[in-house]
């Protein structure tokens, strides 16, 4: 079982899995960043109902396991949606112009992307909020004293500082997206962990399969950390437990 390395065919499976992991993580991170920012703005809204709803949304997504959320989107939603829509979603078609478009993703990919994005967005929203809260209150007063409007203060004083503060923790959250993407194997998405499990079942080379997958994960996380450190001179991941 320790003897020899994986046959090229299986290494191919693993690399395909890595590709799915990276693609899924990248897409989910972008969606989560945008959605997280919107959720943060809603959470800080002066309207009590809006802020309350946003708070409830964030709490619901942060306080339930990603695995259960994935099961809900994958098994639950497919049962709730009309059969015709499900049939359409499952049927192969192409996005975009013929010959240039990407293949239509399988349903587990859609459910996985949705689940991972919504889950991560809730954490990103909290990082944005923490960043905004840590801008010194005196800054708003200083802006007012200079005769700026609330909007001007938000756009040119608070947000630039908040983003500067939040970007390293946000990079940490992107690392969490990569790690959390491993959970989509439970709904049958053929990403890296799924591939490792497949290879292990086929070859019984558990050490090689999980070792290679672990190296890939560490590499991906280290790349994000290295980028964050190089660009902003601070190391991630966040020391907090938010994940």
């Amino acid at each position: 079982m320790f003897d020899g390395f994986l046959a090229p065919r299986y290494i191919g499976w693993m690399i395909d899995g890595l590709g799915v992991t990276l693609g899924l993580s990248a897409l989910a991170s972008v969606i989560a960043l945008v959605l997280g920012f919107v959720l943060c703005v809603l959470r800080l809204s002066p309207s009590r109902p809006v802020a309350g709803l946003a708070a409830a949304w964030l709490s619901a997504f942060r306080n339930t396991p990603l695995l259960v959320q994935l099961f809900f989107w994958y098994f639950g939603v497919s049962a709730l949606l009309p059969d015709s829509l499900m049939a359409w979603l499952n049927a192969p078609h192409r996005i975009g112009v013929e010959a240039f478009g990407a293949p239509w993703p399988p349903f587990e990919m859609l459910a996985g992307l949705l689940g991972l994005s919504l889950y991560s967005a809730a954490f990103m929203a909290e990082e944005f909020r923490a960043g905004i809260y840590s801008v010194a209150p005196g800054q708003t007063a200083a802006g007012r004293a200079l005769g700026m409007t609330s909007t001007q203060i938000w756009i040119s004083i608070i947000l630039p500082q908040a983003v500067r503060i939040a970007r390293a923790p946000l990079a940490g959250q992107v690392m969490n997206v990569v790690k959390n993407s491993s959970l989509t194997m439970a709904i049958g998405l053929a990403e890296l962990s799924y591939a490792a499990r497949q290879v292990e079942t086929e070859t019984f080379q558990a050490f090689q399969a999980f070792g290679l997958a672990t190296l890939f994960y560490i590499g991906a996380v280290a790349l994000i950390g290295g980028f964050s450190q190089l660009a902003w001179g601070r190391s991630s991941p966040p020391t907090g437990a938010a994940r």
Binding site: K179, S182, A206, F207, F210, T214, Y217
Partner: peptide, 14 residues
């Protein structure tokens, strides 16, 4: 840096 899932596999299978 490693997913919880990977560590569970390491311990359980290895």
């Amino acid at each position: 840096a490693i997913p919880v899932l990977m560590l569970i596999f390491w311990i359980y299978f290895l």
